[in-house]
């Protein structure tokens, strides 16, 4: 099954307007499978949420994390069970902090890389120079509240360019929730898992193998066949999803993007149709193949 993860959420433990209890209630109401607790520079909410889940046993799981809010960019850290200091942050070598987070068993990625930063919100834009992307686990490609073209489209293009040159980076999305916001028709992150499975382990497996889906309500699945790949659409039951009249399958490779009609719900492409590109990024659009109608980004296809 595909589990819905909401990977970027704040509470009054940092600067949001909702408490830990209100965040849990909101996530349950929206039928989220797993949510992350990622307050700015503090893990003080972890024990509170753990106690709430233990006491009330709501039908939801949590992965614990933190958003490193530094002077030069925000680093989202997931599966973090202890505080890792960031006071030696180095604008020209952020790999040091990524390594430290990983050494603590956590996943570390770049949040909203193209948000507006200085002079109004220093640190919100990722202004650090990464030399070794193998130290980075993921890029938050869609930070839902941010402007589509100025921020998220640039994030998507950056992630695509890195993946197409061979970097092993997962894509994630998040609400960057700071209040009781409506999450419908926004991207959530989906990972493969089992009912009752360990959400942290399943997330780690998905991120480390770049097996994440970003979706507004339909997932684009792919499976190898003899001589090609079969794509099909799978509903992921996200509240508020508005279906399209037509659907388009797009494959982006180093030689550009090609699209096929997948309104029927499935489509098999032969190896010849897939072409020679070693890496393909599958995407699903409704009605027209532009970013306003993007419904899903599926795991990268690597062709050997």
């Amino acid at each position: 099954m595909l589990k819905r993860y909401e990977l970027h959420n704040h509470t009054t433990q940092s600067d949001a307007s909702i408490t830990c209890a209100e965040l849990v209630d909101l996530m349950v109401r929206d039928r989220v499978d797993v949510f992350a607790l990622t307050d700015h520079n503090t893990i003080s909410g972890h024990r509170i949420v753990k106690a709430l889940l233990e006491e009330k046993k709501p039908p939801i799981q949590c992965v614990y994390g933190m958003e490193y809010t530094t002077y030069y960019g925000h680093i989202l850290c997931l599966n973090l069970d202890r505080y890792v200091p960031w006071d030696s942050i180095d604008r020209n070598c952020p790999e040091k902090l990524f390594r430290a987070c990983r050494a603590a068993g956590a996943l570390a990625g770049i949040a909203h890389p193209f948000s507006y930063g200085a002079p109004f919100a220093r640190g919100c834009r990722f202004d650090m120079t990464v030399t070794d992307f193998s130290q980075v686990d993921f890029i938050e490609v869609f930070n839902n509240p941010e402007p589509l073209h100025e921020v998220n489209e640039r994030g998507l293009n950056w992630w695509q360019s890195l993946v197409l040159r061979g970097e092993r980076l997962a894509a994630t999305s998040g609400m960057d929730l700071h209040g009781a916001w409506d999450m419908s028709m926004n991207f959530a992150t989906y990972c493969e898992g089992e009912p009752g499975g360990d959400p942290a382990a399943e997330l780690a497996r998905a991120i480390r193998n770049q097996r994440t889906w970003l979706s507004k309500g339909l997932a684009l699945r792919a499976a190898r066949t003899d001589g090609g790949v079969r794509f099909h659409l799978e509903g992921v039951h996200k509240p508020g999803f508005v279906p399209g009249k037509r659907y388009w399958l797009a494959l982006t490779g180093s030689d550009g993007t090609r699209t096929w009609d997948i309104t029927a719900g499935e489509r098999t492409l032969s190896d010849r149709e897939l072409g020679d590109a070693p890496v393909l990024i599958p995407k699903l659009y409704s009605d027209s193949a532009d970013i306003e109608h993007l419904i899903c980004i599926a795991p990268v296809l690597r062709r050997t």
Binding site: D15, H40, N41, T42, I43, S44, R82
Partner: peptide
């Protein structure tokens, strides 16, 4: 922002403005 540790152990950070 303000952050505090006791013997190197993190005991909190206030992010609110």
């Amino acid at each position: 922002h303000t952050l505090a540790t006791i013997d190197g152990e993190f005991i909190g950070c206030v992010h609110k403005q």
